Amino acid sequence: MSGFGTPPAGFTPVAFEQWGAELADVLGEERTARWNLPRSAYRPALAVRRDADGAPLAAMLTSGRPATAAVKIVDLWWAASAAGLAAAEALVDGLLEERTVAGDAAVKWEVAPGLALPPFAIARGFAPLREPWGAKGTERFAGYVLWLRDVPHEELGYYAQTTLYTCGAVAGLMAVESRGVVGFAGAGGSDRDREIGFWREATNHPACEPVGLAVRLREEVGASAGGAPDGAPVEVALDHDGPVLLEDYQGFDWNYRAELQEHSAARAAALGVPVSRARVSMEELEVRIREGWVALLLVDEEPMHGVTGAHWIVAHAARDGMFLLEDPWVEDVAGESWVDTHDMPVAAADLDRMVRWGPDGYRGIVWLRRA
């Protein structure tokens, strides 16, 4: 389970304006604006500790996507006193205990510019996350994580898509690092050129369908994959015959996209990209990831965002039914940052709900073999 069915004990899922002016007074204008972002879709919760007179000693704001197995400490404030520090530590310890009992895999900590991770957090095991190549302006935040469940892995680099439609391209360019190929390089404008260029060559207008994305990915890994004795470096699993992601099109709009998919299928055959029509279970997904594959997953965003939409994410580690994902989409206007979407843990039952699309719920996966 994701652990977000109910907020932790002692936490209040309410809008900031209902919390009272007392916190705005102690937080200051800039910090208050950050606490007041419209996070309602992402389970915001507040915990406050008070002194004997009812004055706040410490306050902690958390959030977390539905259908994920992590919670994020958005910010932690405490009064400049020994009692305030003790109250802050107690809030963090309470959160860690709650999330462990709930079965979550991680607690993350987002640190805004001008603030720092407190020493007691480091003592409890919070460790820095790898800095992203690009993250839609949220690079200004530092990110830390405390793993509650052991999912051995090396972090992939992270990049947030800069358009509504380039998730497939970004997923592919993040994944190729596992093959020893440079996708993004943290080079500002040149990275966005890579994002748009990859999309233009893989797109089915505007989405990337699985076979076309696999073809472009196979071209991207190029010579690094040639002659590999362990078989094809890129594969496709798609349990649907005929064109996909065309549910909303008719007539000419349907026909030319379907023709492009026929061309992609022919190109896949020429490049030696196998296409399997068998449905992949979450158990098989975990086995293959542990055997050295990275999986680009076609998902429905609804479990995470409450709105149906086709999207590509990357699964790069798994253990005991817990998967670690890179999600190119950051809902920054609602208080998300790359800290939420990098190394994002999701339990198998929740991922099973996501990895399906269309009325038939078909499942599209592009496999990339690690170097």
Rank of each mutant, 00 (worst) to 15 (best):
V48T: 13
D25Q: 13
W35K: 06
R65V: 08
A47E: 07
R43C: 14
A52P: 03
T62S: 07
W19P: 06
A52F: 07
T6C: 06
G20C: 03
D93S: 14
G5M: 12
A33W: 00
V48N: 05
R99G: 00
E89Q: 15
K72L: 15
Q18S: 15
P7W: 03
A69R: 09
D53C: 02
A45K: 01
A80N: 15
V14C: 09
V92I: 14
R49Q: 10
W35T: 03
V14P: 06
P38S: 01
D25E: 15
E98Q: 15
W35S: 03
A86P: 01
P13E: 07
L96R: 13
E30Y: 05
D93T: 11
P44Q: 08
A69W: 00
E97P: 01
A80W: 03
G20L: 02
A41N: 13
A9T: 14
G94M: 09
G54M: 08
L57S: 01
D53A: 15
R31K: 14
R43S: 12
P66Y: 11
E97C: 09
S63G: 09
G64Q: 03
L57W: 04
L27F: 11
A90N: 07
N36I: 02
P38E: 02
L85W: 02
V26L: 12
P66M: 10
E98M: 10
A80E: 14
E17R: 13
L27N: 04
L85H: 06
A52D: 15
A69Y: 02
A41I: 07
R31L: 13
A55Q: 14
R39T: 04
F4Y: 10
G54S: 11
A33G: 13
A83P: 00
A79T: 00
L76N: 00
P13L: 08
T68C: 14
T62Q: 04
R43T: 13
W78K: 02
